[in-house]
């Protein structure tokens, strides 16, 4: 059964058609990459999936339930986790407290006036930090972390309420190449173990071809191709779109374990 069904998604800003009539499905446990040159409509598309933008037309169904018109926080409650292109964390809290906040919210305890927040859900939060190998950082102030660590922390926060679907907007943007590979390998491992479904946007083709099960290519707001890494590489239309960008579609060897 499909986790997510997107049908006829369209959005224009003023006279510019940012996304037009995009439809695709996402299967359970699938790792789907959304790619395209700059300005292709990836982020617009993404923001319509997570509720930050309202499309002009179209529907997005999560397990049969419509997401269009639902507030981002409700979409999260329906079992969708997300990470941001530029990390968003609670800077004045520790790493552990950031994860605890997600758990507190998940258990609907944010209205609690008298418990000590730092003593709640400690075990669960620590085990989440262990999955991303950040248990040693638990009591570090978030503001002291390196960027790559913040990205990993966001992943732990996104996993806190055991989502069915994970939306990752350029998960490796701003990271060093070695960190990119490590983060995505970690994500792939968690996704496989938890039977999560993932949609991510990405510019780094090594990352895309290495980890995605399926790829969707957008150009000027339209879906121009869909398929596995090899199919996308061989697609002449995609090559044409990317040719000016200088991206090389060769199997570089980094794709071994998709």
């Amino acid at each position: 059964m499909n986790v997510l069904e997107v049908r006829g998604l369209s959005k224009s800003f003023g006279g510019i058609q940012a996304v037009s009539d995009v439809s695709f499905d996402l299967g359970e446990g699938e790792f789907l990459a959304l790619i395209g040159p700059n300005g292709a409509g990836k982020t617009t598309c993404f923001n319509m999936l997570n509720g930050y933008l309202k499309p002009d037309r179209g529907s997005v169904k999560l397990g049969g339930r419509e997401l269009i018109g639902v507030k981002p926080r409700r979409i999260w409650r329906m079992g969708v986790g997300r990470t941001f292109q530029i990390t968003e964390t609670f800077r004045s809290m520790t790493v552990l407290e950031n994860v605890q906040m997600a758990l507190i919210s998940h258990h609907r305890e944010t209205g609690n006036l008298f418990s000590r927040a730092t003593r709640m859900h400690v075990d669960k939060a620590m085990s989440l930090l262990e999955t991303i190998s950040m248990a040693d950082y638990a009591n570090r102030a978030c503001s002291e972390l390196a960027y790559g660590d913040l990205k990993r922390l966001e992943l732990a926060v996104a996993l806190a309420h055991e989502p069915k679907l994970l939306l990752m907007d350029e998960p490796t943007a701003g990271m060093a190449p070695s960190e990119r590979i490590a983060l995505m390998a970690l994500t792939a491992e968690i996704v496989a173990r938890e039977r999560l479904s993932v949609i991510f946007t990405e510019h780094d083709m090594d990352v895309v071809f290495a980890h995605s099960h399926r790829i969707i290519v957008l150009n000027r707001g339209e879906l121009i191709a869909e398929g596995t890494g090899d199919e996308i590489r061989a697609n002449p239309h995609v090559q044409e779109v990317y040719l000016g960008g200088g991206t090389v579609f060769e199997n570089t060897g980094a794709t071994a374990d998709a």
Partner: peptide
């Protein structure tokens, strides 16, 4: 903590429900 979190990042607060 929720208030403080919202002060740090309103986007993150919304994103965790």
């Amino acid at each position: 903590y929720t208030l403080r979190g919202g002060r740090d990042s309103a986007i993150r607060a919304e994103a965790i429900g």
